[in-house]
């Protein structure tokens, strides 16, 4: 088998001219078991790079960190919609209460408050009419009495 392509890639790698894809090909090539003898000298290097590149922490690390910071508890308790809206509901309830109270007070004050001015005017008119009628009637009675006498 011809390994010219791999040999060229190794040269390019050390010159710093390989692409990320070509570097991936090199690491995969050296990760296999059947590497030709004349290329074996590079196997440890590319395997070592691959091993470090794949190193990672697991979920237990996340759990430990979240428990140490207390973030786990904060996240574990979702806030219900009713609780989130509670301040808004309180304001709405207060406004509704204020409107009801305001209306009730207004209605209870109105009959003896603003209305009297109009009602008094009408009453004055009625009084005036009554006085005039009485005066006319009195004059008529006086005329009648004169004519009898």
């Amino acid at each position: 088998m011809d390994y010219k392509y791999i040999e060229q890639l190794i040269d390019s790698y050390f010159e710093g001219t390989t692409s990320l894809e070509e570097e991936h090909i090199l690491r995969e090539f050296f990760a296999q078991e059947n590497v030709p003898e004349h290329l074996l000298e590079w196997q440890s290097l590319f395997r070592s790079e691959k091993e470090l590149a794949n190193a990672h922490l697991d979920e237990r690390f996340d759990e430990r960190l979240l428990s140490l910071t207390g973030e786990a508890h904060v996240r574990a308790l979702p806030i219900p919609l009713r609780t989130r809206l509670r301040p808004l509901l309180r304001v709405a309830a207060f406004i509704a209460f204020a409107v009801v109270i305001g209306t009730a007070v207004e209605q209870s004050v109105s009959p003896q408050g603003e209305a009297p001015a109009n009602q008094m005017a009408v009453q004055d008119e009625l009084d005036a009419d009554e006085t005039t009628a009485l005066d006319i009637r009195s004059a008529e009675l006086q005329n009648d009495s004169v004519s009898i006498n």
Binding site: A53, H56, F61
Partner: peptide, 19 residues
């Protein structure tokens, strides 16, 4: 955010420390 901006980088930081 702790999870998305800090904890999410755990593996990169681990490899840096490991190297």
């Amino acid at each position: 955010d702790f999870r998305t901006d800090i904890l999410a980088h755990r593996d990169r930081l681990y490899r840096l420390a490991l190297s």
